[in-house]
Design a protein around this nucleic acid. Structure first.
Length: 594
RNA sequence: GGCCCCGUAGUGUAGCGGUUAACACGCCGGCCUGUCAAGCCGGAGAGCGCGGGUUCGAAUCCCGUCGGGGUCGCCA
């Protein structure tokens, strides 16, 4: 080894030892007769001291050392002189008196400062990702990710799960997200698809009798990017046989609590509540306006449809008559908002499809006025009933949306998140999980005049709702569950259909005829005829989970080599053109768009 | 595909119709034996992503385009 110790481990107890260290020059402070070099490796920073008197050769080299040069030093660990310790450095009580200094690899001046976590242009970070990854923030995040992955494996191996790999080259499934296709050289005109998730394969592993399977699986979806969505991402894919919903939820809840404990020493994250609250989808929409509520803060939605219906404000009355709701959120201590600020909130509402946002501002103080553009349509009694319903006090702001259920949800969800940000309510160190259950099995697709699966094709209906499949499919609940954390969906799963007849019935309802179904899923249907156990599973998104545990705002921060929003690798320059020979072998002709 | 924000020395920013295009860090040279965001002195380095237009005059205004980010659609 070129080093006897890491740059993070030397302490007072090592004083007097002869050591070899190697790493990068994090910062260099030349001070005439003595040069200080902060030597950095994955484990930390140790100060090397090169003295012109005692080590003239090393000193001559040290004077020319630049940032990010790769160095090896040999010397003696010594306590720093009285008053010279650096309390900001774990190794700050000691330093290494250098006798020998070697430059193992000189570095060009890097395009940005590797020794700090300061703000940088995203494109620059991605172009020089290997330098970005040297920075402390990214080192911490990737090491955290590794610890989380190991903790997941440990947890599941302890519970007798089997880790099994499934193919990356698989079959296209027209449902769901857009597939990434891989042309076949041996089969002209045919394509593999990269898996959107190993969904079918893990169910087949249940048919195969493994009973408890998991995989840290790479998944691919050719859809537009977001801060929490990359074209390739990693799921903990998991499936169990002979289980019911409770078994899966309990297993995962235990795992998540464990992962927070694993991450906490590195990131200071804290679990907000356990056991995890459970909300039905409907409840989540009514109270938070979204199927992925952030429970780190309140700002809950309150229904005021009955009160609004009685007022003289036409929008409220007409909506109530049409069966549409009016709901509101109380924002504490924002009753002094200016007209301009309130107008901006209407813009926010419009940006998510609303027509506007009514407000009642209760100015602070004894003499505080009630300001509201709809005030003149309400009697004094109606106004006070509304204020009471909202539990509002002087100084509060009430924001009201009246529209279709879906629009009211969208508007008040946006309002809620906006004020959480403005009021600093979403502390990234706090981790608030909740389960969402009781999803409808189908959504009505008005364009195609048919039912679409709201989760996926293999989700089992709630047993008591099976009769409704014939009479009222929209009312059938699926045995589906989502795990939400801090406003992000971090896992989704379900109990699956293991009965061929029921599966065929579902195919029928979503407009797949028998021939179609056989062509696409014949292997599944056939497998179900050979003794399929009842089974179910879930797939937590590891990128999102690590992002949240790390307190990061997007998943690029926890992925070593992420793609840009245009799904490009800015470092290597992917995607790139294939040459004529490659294309010919693959039986591909590229068509230029106009 | 729509909407919004950003693009100025190596980096982060300022400048928003007339400036020798500014500041900090970094870089180069010098001084310095206890620094640790070292300090002090001196210096080099951009014509403002790219293309076009408006104007006497454009980094500043307009159009297009490229790149990055956010968001709606999309993501079973």
């Amino acid at each position: 080894m070129l080093k006897t110790h890491t740059c993070g481990e030397l302490r007072l107890e090592h004083v007097g030892q002869r050591v070899k260290l190697a790493g990068w020059a994090n910062r260099v402070r030349a001070q005439g007769g003595v040069v200080f070099i902060d030597l950095r490796d994955r484990w930390g920073i140790t100060q090397a001291v090169v003295d012109a008197q005692s080590a003239p050769e090393a000193h001559a080299i040290a004077e020319k050392v630049g940032r990010e040069d790769v160095l090896q030093i040999e010397g003696i660990v010594r306590a720093r002189p009285e008053g010279m310790a650096n309390p900001n450095l774990p190794s700050g009580a000691i330093e290494v008196e250098v006798h020998l200094l070697r430059v193992l690899s000189a570095a060009k001046t890097p395009p940005f400062d590797v020794s700090s976590d300061g703000k940088l242009d995203e494109a620059l970070r991605l172009k020089y990702r290997y330098l970005d990854l040297r920075r402390q923030r990214m080192q911490r995040n990737l090491i955290l990710r590794s610890k989380i992955t190991k903790a997941i494996r440990d947890y599941l191996y302890e519970r007798d799960f089997v880790e099994i790999e499934t193919p990356i080259l698989f079959k296209t499934t027209p449902e769901g997200a857009r597939d990434y296709l891989v042309p076949s050289r041996l089969h002209p005109g045919k394509f593999y698809a990269l898996p959107q998730s190993p969904q079918q394969l893990k169910q087949l592993l249940m048919v195969a009798g493994y009973e408890r399977y998991f995989q840290i699986a790479r998944c691919f979806r050719d859809e537009d990017q977001r801060g929490d969505r990359q074209p390739e991402f990693t799921q903990l894919d998991l499936e169990m046989s002979f289980v019911e919903r409770e078994d899966v939820l309990n297993l995962i809840e235990g795992l998540m609590i464990h992962l927070v404990q694993v991450a906490a020493p590195m990131t200071g994250c804290q679990l907000v509540t356990q056991p995890f609250p459970r909300l039905t989808l409907q409840e989540a929409l009514l109270r938070y306006g979204t199927d992925k509520p952030d429970l780190r803060y309140g700002l809950e939605i309150v229904d005021i449809t009955d009160l609004a219906a009685q007022t003289g404000f036409r929008v409220f009355a007409e909506n109530a008559a049409a069966g549409n709701p009016t709901r509101a959120i109380r924002i504490p201590n924002c009753g002094n908002y200016s007209r301009k600020q309130l107008d901006e909130l209407s813009d926010l509402a419009r940006s998510v499809g609303g027509k506007g946002l009514a407000y009642i501002a209760l100015e602070a103080g004894e003499a505080g006025q009630v300001k509201s553009p709809i005030g003149r349509f309400l009697t004094v009694e109606q106004m006070s009933a509304l204020i009471e319903r909202m539990s509002a006090q002087q100084g509060d702001l009430i924001l009201i949306s009246s529209d279709t259920h879906a629009t009211v949800c969208a508007v008040l969800d946006a309002v809620r998140r906006e004020f959480a940000a403005r009021l600093g309510l979403a502390d990234p160190k706090r981790i608030a999980f909740c389960w969402i259950v009781d999803f409808p099995l189908f959504d009505w697709n008005a364009d195609e005049q048919r039912w679409d699966p709201s989760h996926h094709l293999f989700t089992a209906p709630a047993p008591e709702d099976i009769p409704l499949l014939d009479s009222d499919p929209g009312k059938v609940r699926g045995q589906q569950y989502d795990l939400i954390c801090n406003g992000y969906e971090v896992a989704g799963g379900s109990i699956r259909i293991h009965d061929r007849a029921l599966q065929e019935k579902i195919f029928g309802l979503i407009g797949l005829d028998v021939e179609d179904a056989k062509r696409r899923f014949g292997h599944m249907l056939e497998a179900f005829e050979y003794g399929a156990p009842p089974h179910g599973g879930i797939a937590p998104g590891i990128d999102r989970l690590v992002m949240l545990l790390a307190g990061e705002p997007n998943i690029r921060e926890v992925i070593a080599f992420p793609k840009s929003q245009q799904a490009a690798d800015l470092m290597a320059g992917a995607p790139s053109e294939a040459n004529a020979r490659q294309l010919a072998e693959l039986h591909i002709r590229v068509v230029k768009d106009d």
